[in-house]
Structures are given as structure tokens and as C-alpha cells.
Amino acid sequence: MKTVTVQKLKEAFHLEVLAADSHMDRVITRPRTHRPGLEFVGYFDFFPMNRVQVLGRKEINYLLTLTVEERKLHIGNVVKYHPPCFIVTSGQQEIPYLILFCEQEGIPLLRTTETTTEFIAKLDSYLIKALAPEISIHGVCVNVSGIGVLLRGKSGIGKSETAHTLIRRGHRFVADDIVVLKKLGPATLLGTHNETTR
């Protein structure tokens, strides 16, 4: 199973670490984020605890309406499931109670200045690509007018020559010899290179 560490997310999105910086090696295995709104009011029937938990203005403003005791209870109920990390959006500041809980439980708490909607769209896209099932196959991949074309066949049959001809006609080269195919969705494949042939 493919994984991404919280540290890798921090670096990719230039996130600020607010708590549990010694636990940045925690792994993310699920490709989509989650906003724990219903969980903060006590509904846990479908809580995807293995996903990155994103706290936007709605979640933080709701928590601020609670008494100190209620806040402890509601946050404690979510934190005990130990999700990979929490990310607070929009640069929100009034979260010392959240910092305390995450520090105690060893769950990284990070912050971004981006808005919730923009950040979730970028993070979901990143995680879908990073965690997508993939295989490596022998062939040549080129981008022909925005569509990936995979050339396969026996060695010496002319795959590279065909790719060179397409490149000379203005199309784009993607990978030669080893092509990595990632399944991004039910009908979407992404052809790319591996790190060795990059």
C-alpha cells in the first residue's frame, strides 16, 4: 500500500507546524480529506479516521461557541481516533485548545493561510496522484495533442523512432523505456516516468 508522510505534506504545501512536530512521520493512506463537522457534534457512524482532517472557519467557529468543558469533550472525541493529522485553514489563530490536545496525543497540527475550499482541492488532487495504484510497463509514452499515447511492442520494433517523429511534429515526450501508469479514477490513467528515468 502506498503512503505519504505528514512531513511530505508539510514540505509540498509549505505548512506551518503548530503541534506534535516530533510525529511528522505519521502516514496518510487515504486519498481524500475530511472536514469533521458532524463528528464535533457527536455523530461518528461514518467517520473516515484514516484521512487528513481539515478544519475550516465553520469548524473552528463552532468550537469557539462551546463552553470550555464542551470543547474538551467534542475535540477529545475526535482526537481519540488518531487521524494522521489536522490542518487548520485560513491562517486561523484562536486554536490553543486544539494545539494542546494534538500535543498530548502526538497528532501533528498544521496550518495554512489558504482558504478551505482552495486548499482542499489542491490537497485532494495531490493525494489522489501520490496514493494512486500504479504499475510500471515497458514502452514509450508521448503526449499527442493533450492525450497520452502509449507505444508498446518488442524491442527494436521502432517505438522510440515513432516517438521521435511525433516530437519533431510538436508533440511532447513523457517517458521512454519504463512508463509508470497511475490509476487516478475509474476512467482516468496518468502516464508518467519513474524517478530513475526522469
Rank of each mutant, 00 (worst) to 15 (best):
T3K: 13
T5G: 02
Q7I: 00
L9C: 08
F13T: 06
L15T: 06
V17Q: 04
L18C: 07
A19E: 11
A20L: 10
A20D: 14
S22C: 10
H23S: 12
M24Y: 11
D25P: 02
V27S: 14
V27W: 00
I28V: 15
I28M: 06
T29A: 14
R30G: 04
P31D: 11
P36L: 07
G37N: 13
E39H: 12
F40Q: 13
V41G: 07
Y43L: 13
F44C: 10
D45G: 11
D45Y: 12
D45N: 14
F46M: 07
M49W: 07
N50F: 09
V52L: 03
V52K: 06
V54P: 02
L55I: 10
L55K: 12
G56A: 09
K58T: 15
E59A: 10
E59I: 09
N61G: 08
Y62E: 09
L63S: 12
T65K: 11
L66Y: 13
L66G: 12
L66F: 13
E69I: 15
L73I: 13
N77K: 12
Y81W: 14
C85I: 12
F86S: 06
I87Y: 07
V88Y: 11
S90Q: 10
S90C: 09
S90Y: 08
Q92W: 06
Y97S: 09
Y97F: 15
L100V: 09
F101G: 06
C102S: 13
Q104Y: 14
I107D: 11
I107P: 10
I107S: 08
L109G: 08
T112C: 04
T113P: 04
T115G: 15
T116P: 03
E118A: 15
E118W: 11
K122I: 08
I128T: 02
I128Y: 01
P133A: 03
I137C: 09
I137T: 08
I137P: 00
V144R: 00
G146V: 02
G148W: 03
G148F: 01
V149K: 12
V149E: 01
R152N: 02
S155W: 10
S155A: 15
G158H: 12
A163Q: 00
L166D: 00
I167M: 05
R168C: 05
G170I: 09
H171N: 10
F173D: 00
V180N: 02
V180C: 05
L181T: 02
K182L: 01
K183V: 07
L184P: 02
A187Y: 07
A187T: 06
A187E: 05
A187S: 07
T188S: 03
T188F: 01
L189S: 01
L189M: 06
T197H: 11
